[in-house]
Amino acid sequence: MSKAIDKASAPYTGSSKKSAGPGFKKNYMGWLFILLAVVGIGLFYFYPMLRALLLSFQSGMGSNLEYAGLDNYIRLFSDPTFIAALTNTFIYLLVQVPVMIILALFFSVLLNDATLKFKGFFRTAIFLPCVTSLVAYAVIFKYLFGVDGLINQFLLELSLISEPLNWLSDPVLAKITIIAAITWRWTGYNMIFYLSALQNIDRSMYEASKIDGATSFQRFFYITVPMLKPIILFTSIISTIGTLQIFDEIMNITNGGPGNATLSISMYIYNLSFEYSPDFGYAATVSYVIVILIVILSLIQFKVAGDDK
């Protein structure tokens, strides 16, 4: 049925000579509909990508750029700031993304229980951080984790620590602060994907497994996780792409410090272009590292997820 309709609205499937005219015209209209989008994406995404690629082979200050071959790419390997930014970004990725996905899965499984009370409240509360802007919540976290901030006051009150912790000026604690902040902001976002996917799992599978004597842990690992695999893959890819580009939080919570202990790749690119004396060529080279990482990591995630099947 739907195929027939598709054909009916497909201008150039008309066989008579008469329809060739309007058919062509309608095709032409189809182009007009997508024209702005194609031109826009070409102009504001693909053309700049190409320009960035060319830039990555140039070096010099400001707009005095000269082709320098692979110099910028070689420089990457001996640039301690770049290596710090790369390492930090990987730490965020390897710690934050799994923690967040496990937490989100856990919440969604608990909230998917039909007999649970106040479900709507819990769901709304955990999702609520998504309404904040990245800058706003980053500034709030900066104050919460300040030396005389509420987190320290709370921990002191509970006697968990004997003196205030330097959350923002200790290299390890600063990273923990950033990771805690991102997890706070994005866990609820991932949770709603899992919640909606859970509703599509056939209840009878759980009932059958209960009859077979499966524990709730077994049900989680042998039914829930495999059934949610596509959506877990999807969310881990978007989280990976997002984390590789992390900027707003770092800029506003720690400004990359102490030293370069929390600097991310995006923030290094920003600093190279707009904070230090502008080195657009090298900044473009660093940015291509993110491009390459996104491609490689997405491929790996597809591969890992595809293997079991």
């Binding site: 580009q245 940015s287 997405s298």
Partner: peptide
């Protein structure tokens, strides 16, 4: 898939 940081400078 294009990261904004990569096209920001151009």
């Amino acid at each position: 898939m294009i990261p904004f940081a990569a096209i920001m400078i151009p």
